[in-house]
Write a protein that binds this DNA or RNA. Structure first.
Lengths: 172, 172
DNA sequence: CCTTTTTCTTAAGGTATCTTATTTTTTGCC
DNA sequence: GGCAAAAAATAAGATACCTTAAGAAAAAGG
């Protein structure tokens, strides 16, 4: 997806913040190793994880980057990671791009829409237990690597309740 | 967004079903007048509205259309409507498209992603009351036109609970 | 290896939201 | 304009999930 001129690789340590709420997003990040996440903090101070980005995933705040408005989200590293930084605005200057790149971007966008729509369906239809089981299927790898409280945040429940659910599942 | 060869206008009556769960989506619909909706039915038989498509909106199941797999959603008309049908697969044959069309598609996709992400954030962070108030702001028009039970389905609560919320809000 | 910090578990009580059922109001239709 | 059908309101009891708090286990760091 990336052409050479706009690439820059960068090592980040666990805990490093790559985008803060209030900033305007300039870069997107493609993850080579490790794992990033994006999250929002609600008015009660609670974090809600929007996306995990392990190897090969791309993460950014499109809305902020494209519309030059302060981001509502944070992006940070939950493991030591290596990423490629992409200047989103330049990259989105469609008229400077060749057709192949546009086709590729369309594919990426399309897949993002499909993924995001699935998440909406999942949140509307599934119970917390369903969402946990689905998380395990979707990211069998991540479940071993990251703390449970991050999983809880992603599926939209408290860590305490996830702990309850896990016990109930184990007793089946 | 549409070029002449792939256009077909069509009148649909309130209640007409344009896509059923289990079918493979062939068409997308651009709404000229009236209003369509997409929804899923969960395992308990309850409907959850994913999207309203009043005038100028586009609605389809990208996942089904692109990956040729049975759709999980329904699309029907909640008002008498006039729509343009678009053959999604042909339209998505990127290599037959000119650059301008690709650029336009990228924009549309981008906006869809932004909208879908906002919905996820909204569902993770906001209470039912917040979501109702936000619906009123986002679709001041629709709130007058459609039954409350459809609004309840969209914001992810029961009609009874929406009724409660409205009373509480009125008593403030 | 030991200490500190973080994460996980457990439990009790609370709240938001659901379910079911009944009644009232609104809408659609001949 | 009146009847049937759909939608909305109301209410009581149930449940999923949250809050708080405390202790146990695991991880991190020097």
């Amino acid at each position: 997806m990336l052409n050479a001129k706009k690439r820059k690789t960068r090592k980040v340590s666990k805990g490093d913040v790559l985008l803060s709420s209030g900033d305007i997003a300039i870069y997107g990040y493609q993850v080579l190793s490790g794992c990033l996440r994006s999250y929002v903090i609600d008015r009660n101070g609670k974090e809600h994880i929007l996306q995990f980005a392990p190897e090969d995933w791309l993460i950014t705040d499109l809305d902020s980057a494209m519309n030059k408005k302060p981001s509502a989200i944070f992006i940070d590293a939950i493991e030591d990671s290596e990423v490629i930084s992409v200047r989103v605005a330049e990259f989105m200057n469609f008229h400077s791009l060749d057709k192949n790149t546009l086709v590729e971007m369309n594919l990426k966008f399309r897949n993002s829409i499909i993924a995001s729509n699935k998440r909406v369906i999942n949140m509307l239809c599934a119970t917390a237990e369903d969402r946990y089981l689905e998380f395990l299927e979707t990211y069998p790898d991540l479940a071993q690597r990251i703390p449970q409280k991050l999983i809880a945040s992603y599926i939209g429940i408290t860590p305490e309740y996830l702990s309850d659910l896990r016990r109930k599942l184990a007793n089946k």
